[in-house]
């Protein structure tokens, strides 16, 4: 069983974004007159940054245990997914830049539900993300899952051929 964590460098950036965003939206929201349009716009944004800060903390404390049979998330949020119960794989790429460079990936693994069939999301700031993506591709092939065009393209960008060749095949 290998244990992976999120890199502190990526999390520092997210903590800063959450803090600055919250200050810039919650501050004006408190000085705006009660019930004004500005308050209706800014208060939900402040809420969003607060949720983002909480999510960053959850990722900070998260530990991902990765093995040949299952992948499990430990920490404030717990989930477990056996590879045999994997029902959907989605690999998305997000970028805030116009040329779509310098973005990040998010891997969503959905199970059949119930014990060892929960949903687990990891993003590319996690150590060993490429290993997990490769194992997910193998499990998707074994479970005969159909992947979207975007997921296939993103696997290709990580250097993962889909379907991956069987072990021992030439």
């Amino acid at each position: 069983m290998i244990v992976y964590r999120y890199t502190p460098r990526a999390l520092v950036g997210d903590y800063m974004r959450a803090g600055i965003g919250f200050a810039l939206t919650a501050g004006p929201a408190t000085i705006a007159p009660l019930g004004s349009v500005a308050q209706y716009v800014l208060a939900p944004l402040a809420g969003l940054f607060a949720v983002f800060a909480a999510r960053t903390w959850i990722r900070h404390a998260a530990r991902l245990e990765f093995g040949p049979e299952r992948i499990s998330l430990a920490g404030p949020r717990r989930a477990s997914l056996a590879w045999s119960k994997l029902r959907s794989v989605k690999l998305s790429f997000y970028s805030t830049r116009g040329d779509r460079g310098e973005g990040w990936m998010q891997l969503t693994l959905r199970g059949a539900g119930g014990y060892d069939g929960e949903t687990i999301r990891v993003d590319s700031a996690l150590d060993g993300f490429a290993d997990i993506a490769l194992r997910a591709a193998v499990a998707a092939r074994n479970n005969r899952l159909e992947l979207s065009a975007a997921t296939l393209a993103n696997f290709g960008a990580l250097g993962i051929e889909y379907p991956p060749p069987e072990q021992g095949a030439t």
């Binding site: 790429f93 040329d99 779509r100 460079g101 310098e102 973005g103 990936m105 065009a149 993103n154 960008a157």
Partner: peptide, 10 residues
């Protein structure tokens, strides 16, 4: 949510 292959790294 697709990467552009000529885009930047993750």
């Amino acid at each position: 949510p697709r990467i552009r292959l000529h885009g930047g790294a993750t």
